[in-house]
Design a protein around this nucleic acid. Sequence first.
DNA 1: TATTGTTATACTCTATAACTATA
DNA 2: TATAGTTATAGAGTATAACAATA
Lengths: 147, 147
Amino acid sequence: MAADEDLMDALVRTTFRVMAVLTRAGAAHDLSLTQLRVLGILRDRRPRMTELAAFLGLDKSTMSGLVERAERRGLMVRGRSPEDRRAVDVALTEQGRELFDKVRRDVVAELAPFVGRLDEAQQCDLTRLLDVLTAADRAGVEFASEP
Amino acid sequence: MAADEDLMDALVRTTFRVMAVLTRAGAAHDLSLTQLRVLGILRDRRPRMTELAAFLGLDKSTMSGLVERAERRGLMVRGRSPEDRRAVDVALTEQGRELFDKVRRDVVAELAPFVGRLDEAQQCDLTRLLDVLTAADRAGVEFASEP
DNA sequence: TATTGTTATACTCTATAACTATA
DNA sequence: TATAGTTATAGAGTATAACAATA
């Protein structure tokens, strides 16, 4: 098989592996993968519902439900935008931030055995290669927060 | 930040990126990410319901529903195991195999622009590093099929 | 008129609990 | 008694369509 298809297989394999870690770490705190991701996005942003939906590739009605449930749990708050009274801004609560940080620590701990199979130089190489791969999509974003 | 946490962020970012591609390619044919993955697993295996559930980290009742819906669409078939009459073997139909191959081609096409940002040597490096990362989990498995 | 967001509806995904059939 | 699988139930995630409020 060609080098590029070998790489794609490796990428898909890695994706399912990391997904499993994120899903489990989230589920331990009753967070779906999507909700965990929303928390990550809100860590340093205060987007509108529509922006958030576009960011995640979800319908706005889906966002309403996701945010509604998270708000009911005290993890996020919604507020009418001052500029445009149609719009709704979403923000993390302190409780939401704490929960995200906790889950993030779990994720780091669960990924450590995998990452630990590489020495420091290999880790830097891999990081750099993955950064190139996702370059067009990154614009100062971090953990779980790219569009 | 430490090299290993930079790497974890890159891994999570890449995971969401690849997930988006898989989700969209599957959705274009009314396949959830999970169902797409099941098709991939069945491509070269004929597991029991319980094996499949353990493989995916899902409850057996969840598997029943997933396979039931796929069977109704003609993508898979279930059959009592000859050895153990409690057990049920799951297999891909020809239609299921064709659908998976079609989606796989779409995924390859959608990942190509990303993978194309790397030259051949970099692609080989990245593949090798990812293989090390997921080494313990691979045992002759391929696309979308690891536990 | 167009945009922002919510609600109603329907279906899939998921787990828990209770069940049947087989070992 | 233990294991394999299904079914019933309930809740979350998702999209489509219809709607209200604002621009």
